[in-house]
Deep mutational scan, measured.
Amino acid sequence: NQASVVANQLIPISTALTLVMMRSEVVTPVGIPAEDIPRLVSMTVNRAVPLGTTLMPDMVKGYA
């Protein structure tokens, strides 16, 4: 089972991601792979991401 990136807090729309905002967790459905966390830092989300939500590729500008 692959770990995915999960929001560690509410991430408001257009917020630049930082390490403290994300954690890795094995979830269903599978989202962005946890090993991509370093790549996600400073990318922005294009929607509000509630606490505990799995980050999907279409939620992060420039990721997909």
Score class of each variant (00 low, 15 high):
64 A>S: 10
20 V>C: 08
42 S>R: 11
22 M>T: 00
48 A>Y: 14
47 R>L: 07
49 V>L: 09
20 V>R: 10
64 A>G: 11
24 S>Y: 07
58 D>Y: 09
49 V>E: 01
37 I>A: 07
13 I>F: 11
20 V>Q: 15
63 Y>F: 14
35 E>D: 14
41 V>Y: 04
22 M>P: 00
18 T>F: 03
16 A>E: 12
27 V>D: 01
63 Y>I: 04
52 G>R: 04
49 V>S: 01
27 V>G: 03
50 P>A: 12
64 A>K: 14
29 P>G: 03
55 L>V: 10
55 L>T: 01
18 T>Y: 03
45 V>E: 03
6 V>I: 12
17 L>H: 00
61 K>W: 09
26 V>W: 08
64 A>W: 04
21 M>I: 03
28 T>Q: 10
15 T>M: 07
31 G>H: 01
57 P>K: 10
18 T>Q: 09
54 T>P: 07
38 P>L: 09
8 N>P: 03
38 P>N: 13
20 V>P: 12
62 G>V: 04
36 D>K: 10
14 S>C: 13
50 P>L: 10
58 D>M: 11
61 K>G: 10
22 M>E: 02
42 S>A: 13
45 V>L: 09
23 R>A: 07
19 L>I: 08
22 M>F: 05
46 N>V: 12
25 E>Y: 08
10 L>C: 14
52 G>Q: 01
28 T>S: 11
64 A>Q: 15
60 V>C: 03
43 M>R: 07
8 N>H: 06
23 R>M: 05
54 T>K: 04
58 D>E: 12
62 G>E: 09
26 V>A: 13
17 L>G: 02
2 Q>S: 13
32 I>N: 00
4 S>M: 03
50 P>I: 06
13 I>Y: 10
24 S>C: 09
33 P>I: 11
53 T>R: 08
61 K>Q: 12
2 Q>D: 15
23 R>P: 03
26 V>N: 07
54 T>M: 04
1 N>Y: 14
58 D>H: 09
8 N>D: 11
29 P>C: 05
58 D>A: 09
51 L>D: 14
59 M>G: 02
2 Q>M: 14
56 M>E: 09
20 V>E: 13
9 Q>F: 09
46 N>W: 06
62 G>F: 07
23 R>D: 05
4 S>Y: 03
25 E>V: 09
56 M>G: 05
35 E>A: 11
37 I>T: 07
30 V>D: 12
46 N>S: 13
15 T>C: 06
14 S>T: 11
2 Q>C: 13
28 T>F: 09
52 G>M: 05
58 D>V: 08
21 M>F: 03
49 V>Q: 01
59 M>Q: 05
30 V>E: 15
56 M>H: 06
10 L>Q: 14
54 T>V: 14
31 G>M: 02
5 V>K: 01
29 P>M: 04
37 I>H: 02
43 M>E: 04
2 Q>V: 13
8 N>T: 12
27 V>N: 03
7 A>F: 03
41 V>H: 00
13 I>A: 13
17 L>S: 00
30 V>H: 14
23 R>L: 05
61 K>L: 15
55 L>E: 00
52 G>E: 03
5 V>I: 14
37 I>V: 05
24 S>P: 13
36 D>S: 11
56 M>D: 04
20 V>S: 14
44 T>E: 09
26 V>R: 04
62 G>A: 11
49 V>F: 02
39 R>P: 01
